[in-house]
Design a binder for these strands. Structure first.
Lengths: 359, 359
DNA sequence: CTGAAAGCGCTTACAG
DNA sequence: CTGAAAGCGCTTACAG
């Protein structure tokens, strides 16, 4: 019962304001913007202009400004996201980006794709001037695909984990984090430690596997291939992998602890254990990776490797802004890549000392 | 080690393509767009133009197009979001909107605010032509504030739950959903049923309280004020309220079941119960409202009232597109408000029959 | 079937 | 200190 009929009146333009204030549109532009030329507008004129603008409710037309300045003041965020899972990882990233974008007066446009490989053409399409730069949320992006990105748009990638000419990459020392949490499990008395990894072949997944194996080796624990299973960084796969493992080996073969390559995998793993009647951490300790907010919503709360996702996302935005400036010739700043953040451990209730030791 | 030096060459324009094809820019525009005029371009010319455009990698400049057409082809999504909680509700909404936007060739820009009241000015600022219309994710928006929204932008609101002139509102039959899940708890043998409500005064919260009380009344169960506590639709508040209640009344006074006004509240409630050593559903049944993806990530999985959030979000986008068309005079379609979706029950493991009955 | 002109609302040199 | 002009790249009438 309520669709507005007609645009009552068109929005005020610079010319309108100029007319009202008795000056040219150009003077209004100079006065309202913080350009160097603006310094040369007299205080009196400036006040007149401000009053007229206020009265007319003047708002600059972004399209016109973008056309003249070749800047949209909007940055894109591309992510592969099926949407049938919460993807708390992305939520953290997005909020970090949006928060930072406000500081730069930028607007954030989100593009979601189903699959980097099949949708790369769409990514290119979107780089047609509607955004000034793009942040790729890229854990699943391969080097080959990254190489096909257009060259006329500045990119910054989060977790691409592999260097591509022209793209600044932001990541964390995942290998170390994986090592540290595995070592921590060992120090709690665990020996048979399972790792549910991300998709094999993905650099991030391999790094976590390496950290895991390094910690085992340092502790003199022989690597047991039956304790390394794969899940594609999703809750769904985490649950499945755990279920299949229990079916194959039986509950009596259960490891002391399970280190999952992501919080999502860990959540699936928790579910599988619960539905098999196994208790965490009494029967088995579980930990994840990322420290998304989800790690604090499971019962018990999930021990995990913390990556400062918000900070990393904010940094991505900052670096992108710098690159956009330099792209437009405003600066010559160069940004080193990759930028690596430190991981830390967040030990919580899902992990405990082994009974033999604690009891 | 990699910041690109200079824009190698400016992007091809319509004029460039025209020059290459030996026609005017206007002919290129007509040929490339699906305008009525385009029908009058000969097949031969059209082919020439297509080839030239392809060869030059022509991509229309969105800013120029937006300026000429007065359409940005982008829609805004505004949400109040502190970001210190996952807000799975918003994640569902956003993915529904993005999915639908692709079908309409629209781009989605996300604006987050801390507080409708203090940030309303920012909402207005953002309605300056950079978006063609706005979807308000508005559970916390009051009628008074909604009334101050600018009149020159088409709005559609999700869960505003209160009619405002000029705004189409999309909601669900929450009162009924709250009634149904409460009645369902009763039918499982529960008598002392607690309700942790959303913020008092919010229409959505009051509706759920009403449904809860109606079901109790129908079952001849007297309303017990000590079993109605408030939490502001957040996990944090859900945990706090539950904790405080246990402190105040003691575990022995625990109700049979707890109906939380949102999945987020329920998650906090689950956490509080777990940290108090109480088991769900053995000691107490718990259910939520929304059926966000989070309801399936808790252990046990959360029984809840399902609102089809994705569908509702998609509908919001569709309605908004219709309103934008009519706003631009392309159509005179009118959309009734509110649009009400049906809720359904999703019973899961967090709820069980009372022992007295089942045992 | 195709083109020349004007205009969308802003900014950026260039004059004065 | 301020203005007239040209241009950003597109679309929309209007001619022919």
């Amino acid at each position: 019962m309520n669709t507005r009929k007609k645009k009552s009146t068109r929005a005020a333009t610079l010319a309108d304001v100029g007319r009202a204030a008795g000056v040219s549109a150009m003077a209004v532009s100079a006065a309202l913007n913080e350009t160097k030329t603006s310094a040369r507008i007299s205080e009196k004129t400036r006040a007149k202009i401000a009053k007229a603008a206020e009265k007319l409710g003047y708002r600059p037309n972004v399209a016109a400004r973008a056309l003249a300045k070749r800047r949209m003041n909007t940055i894109g965020v591309s992510v592969v996201w099926e949407g049938d899972e919460p993807n708390v990882y992305f939520v953290e990233i997005l909020s970090g980006i949006i928060e930072a974008s406000a500081r730069f007066g930028q607007t954030v446009t989100v593009f979601t794709f189903h699959d980097w490989k099949n949708d790369m053409e769409k990514v290119r399409e979107v780089c047609d001037g509607r955004i000034d730069g793009m942040i790729l949320v890229a854990p699943l992006l391969t080097k080959e695909l990254a190489a096909t990105l257009p060259r006329h748009t500045p990119f910054v990638a989060l977790h691409a984990n592999t260097e591509t000419e022209g793209i600044v990459n932001i990541e964390s020392d995942e290998e170390q984090g994986a090592h540290d949490i595995t070592a921590s499990l060992v120090s709690l008395g665990h020996r048979r430690i399972m790792h549910i990894s991300g998709g094999r072949g993905l650099v991030g997944a391999e790094r976590r596997i390496n950290g895991y194996r390094r910690a085992l080796a340092e502790a003199g624990i022989e690597f047991d291939p039956s304790l390394l299973v794969e899940a594609n960084f999703t809750m769904y796969e985490g649950r499945n992998s755990m279920m299949e493992w229990i079916d194959a080996y039986g509950k009596d073969k259960l490891p002391d602890a399970i280190f999952c390559a992501s919080d999502s995998i860990a959540m699936g793993c928790l579910e599988a254990l619960a539905s098999s009647g196994l208790r965490v951490p009494d029967d088995v300790s579980v930990c994840g990776f990322d420290d998304t907010i989800a790690a604090r919503t499971t019962v018990p709360q999930l021990a995990t490797v913390r990556q400062p996702l918000r900070l990393m996302a904010a940094r991505a935005l900052e670096v992108l802004m710098k690159r956009i400036e330099s792209y437009h010739g405003k600066s010559q700043d160069t940004v080193a890549s990759p930028i690596v953040f430190k991981t830390t451990l967040a030990m919580r209730g899902s992990v405990t000392r082994t009974k033999k030791i604690s009891g």
